[in-house]
Design a protein around this nucleic acid. Structure first.
Length: 568
RNA sequence: UGGGACGUCGGCAAGAGGUAAGCCACCGGUUUUUGGUACCGGCAUUUCGCAGGUUCGAAUCCUGCCGUCCCAGCCA
């Protein structure tokens, strides 16, 4: 799907769209649909966020509406502009356009403040001078009601004065908070006089030292939505319990728009973790090289790994939107990716674990340049020339001295096709001191140039190769799942998710050989290394003369499956 | 001894009283100069968490159970 297709094809309906359909029919929001993606800039975006981004933006497109990008920057302790920059980059990279609607909750701090004043004046909010511990204790538990603070009955005048002092920095952090006066006996803990403002004498990335009181999520979020005239505020399931509070705050301000909050299930994927806290731990404790480590489920990690924005979008549309907590099989993500790359990625030949092959009957010093199609799925991709000579490398896996049944590749006395080149037959095996295969002596059939035998004889196996003299030495990184468990959070006694990190999640091969055309590979482009998988240049670690490739995803490997099924 | 939500194939997910879509995974097979791709076939019928009930007819409606998740931040 190209960027211009966004929102045109998807539109698999879901329960949220049904709600919107009804709102549209009833004219509830003036026939408008306006959504928003509201990240907190306290970490990097991951594929779970992509689900929300895709949902919000494509929903807007489907209904001819708009979608804002809004930073929910209400907690300067955790937030940083580094994160703002990365989030902007990632949403853009995913292919979405918020036009001129990039907003920040912090831009509304003044409005929030004035609305708070209004609630105080109406006796609906009060300054509580209890300690955090007292407030926590008085909140009660899920099964027992809370008790009212002794400060709950302060007069509006008193509260106004106190709140003013809070704003002016006349109190220390933790000395007091502004609370909504709702119901300490509510079975919903969120309604037990929730905190609206707390004191934080911390500079804010955007407002600097202007404020030392910062609004809490519940107080801020509905107002942000209302100020931006959002119609449908989509969020994840854990905010379901907050919806009554979202509505309560807006009900106290009857003159401003009141969006509808709808909750959906967040994305979980097998063999990875998705919480910012856990991803941060992986980064900080060095389990991965950074937020953009290609093993990370972050947008930046997937990008570096070679995932395309369109594959991520397609994936997000495929998984559906519901309220059922679910875990998507990572294989589905890989399927969607392969499905795209198969159609778009040019083919190249690369030998990951080289085994030398000498063609004994090939004229000394001769070389020839053969035609190779760039993509059998797309003839417009054209052809390229690849060099052939008397000394080649093939994959170590593609030769077996004692081949098992159904093994179609090279073996002593056996003939195979070198893709795009010739049939070769293995005559001799040269071994090293430890008995390891060092080199193969083969003969080629000059009549099979291009890979077809004029006498019509067939070979079962076709393998890839590179010309030793022409090949470029390179590093290839094979990535596997970050964890060995489908659900790394399901831990045994005394263990945590980091105990299940897959020590084969990164396998670095330093002696690979690629066909010469690959030395012109560009970052951000995907190539299929024939019979191996899809790879892309690692822009960060590539050195002049020594390219580094990341394996984006392997090809399906039926032979590997046969093997494991045979001896499990 | 609370409140809010959710239970349809191994994983997602349609389904809205008329007799269980689709996709991934998995298993067979065909084609193939990639053991890739493509294509064909199989994969929920005493079956929709369980048990009752209503109905000519129930995954859909009613009742009661069971299971899972969320909530006691001055995080979002």
């Amino acid at each position: 799907m190209s960027k211009t297709d966004i929102g045109k094809a998807p539109a698999n309906s879901n329960f949220i769209h049904e709600i919107i359909d009804r709102d549209l029919a009833s004219g509830r929001y003036g026939k408008r649909v306006h959504t928003r993606f509201p990240p907190e800039p306290n970490g990097y975006l991951h594929i779970g966020h992509a689900k929300s981004i895709v949902l919000n933006f494509t929903t807007a497109v489907k209904y001819g509406g708009k979608c804002n990008l809004r930073f929910d920057d209400t907690n300067p302790e955790k937030e940083a502009s580094e994160y703002i920059d990365s989030i902007i980059e990632d949403v853009k990279w995913l292919g979405f356009d918020w036009e001129d609607r990039l907003f920040y909750a912090s831009d509304y701090f003044n409005k929030f403040y004035r609305y708070a004043l209004k609630l105080i004046e109406e006796g609906k909010a009060y300054v509580d001078s209890s300690t955090p511990e007292e407030i926590s204790r008085m909140r009660g538990t899920p099964t027992s009601p809370g008790i009212e603070s002794s400060y709950r009955d302060r007069t509006p005048e008193e509260n106004l004065a106190l709140f003013e002092k809070m704003k002016n920095g006349e109190f220390n952090e933790g000395e007091c908070v502004l609370r909504a006066k709702i119901d300490m006996k509510s079975p919903n803990l969120n309604l037990r006089d929730p905190v609206m403002y707390r004191i934080k004498k911390v500079p804010h990335p955007r407002t600097g030292n202007t404020w030392c009181i910062y609004p809490m999520y519940d107080w801020a979020h509905g107002l942000e939505d209302s100020i931006e005239n959002i119609t449908h505020s989509l969020c994840t399931l854990e905010f379901e319990n907050h919806r009554p509070l979202y509505n309560w705050f807006l009900d106290q301000l009857p003159d401003i728009p009141h969006p509808r909050q709808i909750e959906f299930a967040r994305l979980n994927l097998t063999y990875t973790v998705m919480s910012k806290r856990k991803l941060l731990k992986l980064v900080e404790e060095g389990y991965v090289s950074g937020w953009d480590d290609p093993r990370m489920p972050t947008i930046s990690g997937l990008r570096r790994r070679g995932y395309t924005p369109s594959a991520i979008r397609k994936f997000c549309e495929r998984i559906g939107v519901s309220k059922t907590e679910s875990t998507i099989d990572f294989a589905l993500l890989e399927y969607v990716l392969r499905d795209e790359l198969n159609r778009t990625a040019q083919r190249r030949m690369a030998v990951l674990n080289p085994l030398k092959v000498t063609i004994t009957n090939y004229p000394e010093g001769k070389e020839e340049w053969l035609d190779a199609e760039n993509n059998p799925e797309d003839s417009s991709a054209g052809v390229r020339k690849i060099p052939f000579s008397g000394v080649l490398y093939i994959e170590q896996d593609d030769f077996l001295e004692e081949p098992p049944k159904k093994y179609f590749r090279l073996a002593p006395g056996r003939e195979v096709r070198l893709k795009h080149a010739y049939f070769i037959t293995c005559n001799n095996v040269i071994k090293g001191e430890n008995g390891q295969v060092k080199e193969l002596l083969c003969t080629y059939d000059p009549a099979t140039r291009g890979g077809e035998a004029p006498d019509g004889r067939k070979v079962r196996g076709t393998i890839h190769w590179v010309s030793a003299r022409h090949a470029v030495k390179t590093q290839v990184r094979l990535y596997n799942s970050l964890f060995t468990r489908e659900n790394p959070l399901e831990t045994e006694e005394g263990k945590d998710f980091t105990d299940y990190i897959n020590n084969e999640s990164l396998v670095t091969l330093k002696n690979c050989r690629i066909e010469p055309s690959l030395s012109e590979a560009k970052g951000g482009e995907n190539y299929q290394f024939l019979r191996k998988g899809y790879f892309c240049l690692d822009n960060r670690d590539t050195n002049p003369g020594y390219p580094v490739f990341n394996r984006t995803v392997a090809l399906r490997d039926t032979w590997a499956r046969i093997r494991t099924n045979r001896n499990p």
